[in-house]
Computed example of a mutant assay.
Amino acid sequence: MNTQGMDKVRRKMRSATQSLNEAENANDYEQFVDRWTAFLLTLNAAFNALEKTIKGNKKHREWYEIISKERYNDPLMRYLIEARNVEEHGLAPVTGITPYTFAASALGGGGFEVDIDIGHGNDYASVKPMPGSTVVVQRTWPRPILVKIVKDNRGVTEEFAPPTSHLGNEIASTKPIDIGVLGLGYLQMVVDAAERELK
């Protein structure tokens, strides 16, 4: 086994894990984008290091070609590959952010007063019901989302929507962190298989 190569694969995998954890705990959208980008790059670097580790042996190279085809054909892994490619070589964003929403309604016949200030660093909203009414408030905070990736290869355009399946199974969430966790899980599965294969 090429232990030096596998050490590099594991280092890249740790870096990808750390970047994803930092993206999950980001304080703002810009910090999230920076850490998500680092995750995409280091996840891909781990697969590249694994391919180079295996490349020299024909038997193992054939095994890795099967893994490589699976990764390329899986909607989730292909999305991560294409997002990395756009992030590295393109200009389009690979994530977006949902808007802040606020809705209030009065029950019981009365109305309400709203005092709201959004977008000045100390966002707040207060709702004061009129006598005889109850107010129901719904708000959603901005959150990062994955966006459709558009790949233009010499005039041929391909589009990759955020994935809804992985390894033949429907996935419950397309939130970036959840997609990242599945991508890391796949990498871990491949690394475990490679270590068994290289013995």
Rank of each mutant, 00 (worst) to 15 (best):
E88P: 00
E88H: 05
H89E: 11
H89V: 00
H89P: 02
H89K: 14
G90M: 03
A92S: 12
P93L: 02
V94W: 03
T98N: 07
T98K: 07
P99I: 00
P99V: 02
Y100S: 01
Y100R: 03
Y100W: 07
Y100L: 14
T101G: 05
T101Y: 06
F102G: 01
A103H: 12
A103P: 00
A103T: 10
A103R: 14
A104F: 06
A104T: 12
S105W: 03
L107M: 08
L107F: 06
G109E: 15
G109M: 13
G109H: 10
G109L: 12
G110M: 07
G111A: 04
G111V: 05
G111R: 04
F112M: 13
F112P: 09
E113D: 10
E113H: 11
V114H: 05
V114M: 06
V114K: 13
I116C: 03
I116F: 02
I116E: 14
D117Y: 02
D117E: 11
G119K: 08
G119C: 06
G119M: 04
H120Q: 06
G121K: 04
Y124R: 15
Y124P: 02
S126C: 06
S126D: 13
K128V: 14
P129A: 15
M130R: 15
M130Y: 14
M130S: 14
P131S: 12
G132H: 07
G132C: 01
T134S: 14
T134N: 08
T134Q: 13
V135A: 14
V135S: 01
V135R: 01
V136P: 04
V137P: 07
V137H: 08
V137F: 10
V137S: 13
Q138K: 15
